[in-house]
Design a protein around this nucleic acid. Structure first.
Lengths: 238, 238
DNA sequence: CGGCTCCTTGAGGTTAATCAATCCTGGTGG
DNA sequence: CCACCAGGATTGATTAACCTCAAGGAGCCG
């Protein structure tokens, strides 16, 4: 039956997520029952700041960005969300979305209505602890973002590059000189990256050029290599 | 019995808090049982960034600041906490504190150990929903802080002043001209306020002087009055 | 080929941090 | 009572960061 196959897909997506990855089969089943699958093309708006809050989302595949529109037209990117992560959790207990979300690629995602989810949480304390953990992680991350914004652009960029290598990073270490080199790929356009770093493309370009000139990184299109990890870490500390 | 009086005090403090204000008597009782009352003088460190995370805190009276120390010695204030609010919730599921907390006045606070609290939450789904709500509010607030930091200093100051009047604000509206005037008092030294706004005392001083010269606010020591609400709101939008 | 978007590079201007001097205000001790 | 000092707050001058505006490339698709 196709329904069986469909729920199998949903279950798998849920199990692959950071937030629900370790739930019991029973819990996954209950959760799957309230999820509403969606598919969106690149550049679609998931919700806008000020929209009435009805649901939060699990991103099954693709990538989205969470951002604010400043009055002068600039956009401030708060967060890039990767497959397996959730976004919009903050509206579980708020009445409107505090920011905008737009897809950066073709996406599959699950809409999880707040009322249904809250009812579920009331039945499953374990689920509550889990989402508490997720929100705690978000809080820590936002704390870091705030700290970062008080640093100069080169430090922000250095942190981003180091973080990127650490997570999505090529363990492609070349056991050569000082700590070896790390290879990785920029996941977005430089325009998006600049917004994510709270700066403009021109400044990002200059900063990357500076890093390349001084031999700290090597850059070819989206592929980059950290040649001097120590120097980059020093730069990340203001 | 003194024990009875003591628990009465704790219960009242809990009930006065934003987070636990609407719990049932039974829930308050269980919570009170795991709270550890503390009294601290001005300028005391509650915890430091990197400390192993064992508890979060409810501030019963006084005021504390949450801040990060930047490598160059500057301090970045993330948040000022008032009586009745909680702080450190983010460590409920993290293993170390992500920032420092220091008292700005004499404080009474309650240490709430994470393990005991988590056990309590597992028993009381309602409590879980409640703290979820609190963390959602925190998330929204941090979102705002990030957005603010991308604005120029005058806009940040304008938002702070408007927000202050709206919350702690004198409803002392003088029904005179454009929307009337609002009177309020700066709750901290200008040094602390500058840190809270992510700037330095010199710049704050200049910006306040500028606002005063242009007749938007009147300032006398800590007492200030918003003379032109509309102008300040315009300034808050970059 | 022309138009497009994305990225880079250059020149100039603006914001705000830094450095430094002065002015209060309150407290202390002669 | 007053000279003195310490800390916070202000003001001025200088400097640095980075945004803005403007002008090219380089790849891509009609």
């Amino acid at each position: 039956m196709s329904a069986g196959i469909l729920t199998r897909v949903i279950d798998d997506d849920l199990r692959r997520s950071t937030l629900f990855g370790t739930l019991t089969d029973d819990q996954i089943g209950k959760l799957a029952a309230i999820c509403e699958p969606q598919s969106l093309p690149t550049g679609a708006r998931v919700f806008a700041q000020g929209d009435p809050a009805g649901a939060f989302y699990l991103l099954a595949s693709g990538a989205v960005k969470v951002f604010k529109l400043l009055r002068d037209g600039r956009t401030a990117t708060l967060r890039h969300v990767d497959a397996g992560e959730t976004f919009g959790e903050s509206v579980l207990f708020a009445d409107a979305y505090p920011s905008n979300v737009e897809t950066m690629e073709e996406c599959r995602l699950y809409r999880i209505p707040t009322t249904a989810f809250r009812a579920l949480v009331a039945d499953e304390p374990d689920l509550a602890l889990r989402i508490l953990g997720s929100m705690a992680r978000l809080l820590v991350m936002l704390n870091q973002r705030i700290e970062e914004l008080l640093l100069p652009v080169p430090a922000r960029l250095a942190r981003y590059l180091l973080d990127l290598c650490a997570r999505r990073g090529g363990p492609t270490t070349d056991g050569a000189a000082t700590g070896g080199t790390l290879v990785c790929y920029l996941p977005t356009s430089k325009r998006e990256l600049a917004a994510r770093l709270g700066t403009v493309p021109e400044t990002l370009s200059r900063t990357l050029a500076q890093l390349t000139r001084s031999g700290v990184i090597a850059l070819d299109e989206a592929r980059f290599e950290i040649l001097d990890v120590a120097a980059l870490e020093r730069m990340a500390q203001r």
